[in-house]
Design a protein around this nucleic acid. Structure first.
Lengths: 306, 306
DNA sequence: TCAAGTGATTTGTCTAGGACAAAATGAATT
DNA sequence: AATTCATTTTGTCCTAGACAAATCACTTGA
């Protein structure tokens, strides 16, 4: 039952650990000869730890845009070199370096204090743009290169989430328009962008309501109607499957009333090929502020005309 | 691509919505004649919404201990009766009813105020046991029965999460042992249980560190070593795939040092078939308190002997 | 020079039914 | 009551083929 005691992992365990489906694991074996698991007496696949490690590297490189046919035949060491060489950071920012050092030393509480201090010192919005965002990018890159481990990335996310939720401005019903409905689509793994967008909107005095991550398209539309939202805002991380993006956003655009604005933001939307008509794309938190201002200006104007 | 426009959902979509694996969906169809999806021109399964609804009911009843062979042949209405009968919500708790009414009226801010007020009135622990937990169960049941929409469940989760994170006791390095590492396994969708467990541990004065949800087994073990944790605590929602539970927990138990305790809690663990040796199962927040006390007692005793 | 096709290739997911391991049930025994 | 054992039920894994969707490599037209 316990896989490590048997000298390998079952295909279910590998699916859980790597996020690669059983179908993919089997078809890669058939097509590319890797992975090449051992077999139990009953003929079931048994993956050694080394193959699991290589599969995790492959997974990382594929998230960075590589294709399995190219990289599955390479050795573990070559893949490691690829991951390391993929990008380098030369910019030396002392605050960011300090935070990264705390993270690598697993000093979660101190990391949180550093965040808190930065918010008090520079204000929440500057913290978001000058510290949280670049730090998240660095952590993501470091994870891709294998410089930090997954649990360290989790620790970072958790501390930043806790900090942001504690610092989140409460609107307590006093917010002005627009009423914004915030969420992510199903399949989106990261909720940090959502929180940062929510904080920015609240700072602008907008009435923003978050549904949290992973709301199906039909339910976003239903929530928008129930909430009488002026704007629906979606957050996309770099990992979000690009193929789903255009289709799902188009579906949502069609399901929403024409007068409801649809805003998309986050790293996943920067490199998106095409965005459907009637959908705004914003590549940074500053653009949220601009868009809120533009929305208010347009509404005032129209209100004056009517 | 769009599932609803095709008049049904693909097998992947049903797997995602119900948590039933593709293999199970196909073998049920073969053995019991249900589900009986339509087919696309290419011969691929296309599940109508009604069958999805029935599958969700079946899933819920199986979580309550029923077996597929018994219930798959029953009608949607009969199953609905079973679900209604199974959970006795005769208890009319005015606070819970009030909160549920606020949720159904989409008054998120007021719901949050109600939570906040309850915490101030009864204390955080009583709030968790007497309000948050039963309310989460009611919301889950109502969702399964179709009495509330998914976005309403999201709204509930988001408001409760925000409340808990704001009310979370900070340990700021002053915590006493045990040092607890909190997370969930990959595949776990819900993070509320984790937050509630974290709050309980902090109330006990324990040094608890959360990695957030969905940490792979290998990385949990690495984090445990790096953090020198005394205890690793996992949270399982009712939706967590039962088949994976035993295997993954067994793997983790094997990967952790023998002196590190492993605690599993949450609705997903209540009906678990078997828990590996050396793993504690706790079915409520109170048990966390007991277990912390027991851990401290054992440690003092051993310390005195040595 | 860049945008928009077009065909070829790559890649992921689906299908079928058989096989069997693990768990639950029920009956017989201590 | 608690244990054992056989029987049923149930979930997972297997193979290998098929094909849809995404991407690449290339051409065409503005």
């Amino acid at each position: 039952m316990n896989s490590t005691s048997l000298g390998g992992l079952t295909i279910s365990a590998v699916e859980r650990e790597t996020g690669l489906s059983k179908d993919v694991l089997r078809v890669w074996e058939r097509r590319y000869g890797f992975p090449a698991p051992l077999r139990t007496a009953a003929g079931e696949r048994l993956y050694p730890e080394e193959q699991l490690a290589k599969l995790k590297l492959v997974r990382r490189l594929m998230d960075a845009g590589m294709r399995p046919g190219r990289i599955l035949s390479m050795s573990f060491e070559s893949l490691n070199g690829l991951v390391r060489g993929s990008d380098s950071e030369v910019s030396a920012d002392s605050a960011l370096d300090g935070a990264l050092a705390l993270l690598k030393a697993h000093r979660g509480a101190e990391l949180r204090s550093a965040f808190h201090h930065a918010i008090l010192h520079d204000g929440l919005f500057r913290f978001l743009t000058d510290m949280a965002t670049p730090l998240a990018i660095r952590v993501g890159n470091a994870w891709m290169r294998g410089d930090i481990r997954i649990f360290e990335e989790h620790l970072f996310t958790e501390q930043l989430t806790a900090t942001l939720r504690a610092a989140m401005p409460q609107d307590s019903g006093t917010g002005r328009p627009p009423r914004v409905l915030l969420t992510t689509l199903p399949g989106e793994q990261h909720g940090l962008g959502l929180l940062m967008a929510e904080a920015t909107l609240r700072l602008e005095g907008a009435q923003s309501i978050s549904l949290g991550p992973q709301t199906p398209v039909g339910d976003i539309a239903a929530a928008c109607l129930a909430n009488r939202s002026d704007v629906v805002a979606l957050s996309f991380s770099a990992n979000f499957p690009q193929n789903q993006l255009t289709g799902a956003v188009g579906m949502l655009r069609a399901a929403l009333p024409a007068e409801t604005a649809l805003w998309c933001g986050g790293a996943g939307v920067v490199h998106a090929r095409r965005i459907p008509d009637g959908v705004a794309r914003m590549t940074g938190l500053q653009e949220i502020r601009n868009e809120v201002a533009a929305w208010r200006a347009a509404r005032t104007e129209r209100g004056a005309q009517q």
